[in-house]
Design a protein around this nucleic acid. Structure first.
Lengths: 185, 185
DNA sequence: GTCTATAGCTAGATAGAC
DNA sequence: GTCTATCTAGCTATAGAC
């Protein structure tokens, strides 16, 4: 063959980058193709379901990242405070310190919203539950832990929006700090 | 003429509803036309710049709402605590208690992001400043007031996302309550 | 597995009658 | 001011050669 197969992981990362940047409706196959370095027909070879299949694969990929990087950390047997630090660090890296958007939010409008609503809701709920679990390990009562789980995700999502529109990534870091403070209070 | 002119305010509200629901890229002219009860050509008569013009008009309309409903309240001469209550109430109404999305966020992806970035950033900054101003009136020092302004918008935006994806509007009301608590602490 | 070429459709936008 | 009819460009998706 003239050219070797492009690494699937690279393709996935590029698709993720496009979708989280411009959203599902805003991502054209032309852009997805040029971002991955593949032609449209080659993308269809890998994703027979087309754009929907690409988005689904990206969401599954992110789910795998959540499981191995966030939930694994938050629910491990390390000391609770260390788990909190490690998880917040991993989150900061994933969002490049507030410079990148959340793929779940990017998929929450238009055509994608109807297709992926359940999957997105489930992922958000998993985040809330994992943070709430950590909160109980830190000594908070059940009600407080639930509120802390919710407010953690609220702060992450809200600060990402502000960080990007105001081009002040430090707002995201501030939010991560605030989460830490809330949990250790 | 066979039919009377459709009220401009009604048209604006319908356009706003479509854009905030499905986003800029997700809003087709066919949907915008059917939502307003006008044909495409009639929409173009009112908005010669097409979809961009409609989105701009909607954002200007919302800016007017911000000025008259939020900033006017937050910066009035009423007692600070009453201003806070009134503003949070107006916000709750505008987002239908957490059931409707933020139009600014809906315009933050894809083609719209590049066109309206400055306008969106300016509006967010105005919200932060108005809330920060109120915080100083409530006795907080300048640094704390700035943080409170930022965290207010973070909580509003973040909770709207969660409220809609998890279909739990109460998360939005919880966030408004939390803002109130923060300011009166 | 990747490519060129293209089908079929819907998008945003316009012309011109009434 | 609103409409029907239509244009072009871009979209998603596919066929078939290599």
């Amino acid at each position: 063959m003239a050219f070797s197969k492009v690494e699937p992981d690279i393709v996935m990362e590029r698709l993720l980058h496009v979708f989280r940047s411009v959203g599902y409706d805003g991502a054209s196959l032309t852009e997805l193709a040029s971002a991955t370095g593949l032609k449209k027909a080659s993308l269809y070879h890998r994703f027979p379901d087309g754009k929907v299949g690409m988005a689904r694969a990206v969401l599954d990929h992110v789910k795998g990242w959540d499981d191995s990087q966030i939930f694994y950390i938050l629910l491990s047997s390390e000391p609770a405070k260390e788990r909190l630090d490690a998880a917040l660090n991993a989150i900061s890296v994933f969002y490049e310190g507030g410079r990148l958007a959340c793929i779940l939010r990017a998929m929450s409008h238009g055509a994608a919203a109807e297709i992926f609503r359940d999957q997105i809701a489930e992922t958000f709920q998993n985040w809330v539950n994992a943070f709430a679990h950590l909160a109980t390990d830190l000594g908070h009562d059940s009600d407080t832990a639930q509120k802390l789980g919710e407010s953690s995700l609220v702060k992450i999502q809200g600060s990402l929006i502000l960080a990007q529109t105001l081009q002040k990534p430090e707002l995201f870091q501030d939010a991560l700090e605030a989460i830490k403070t809330d949990f250790l209070k």
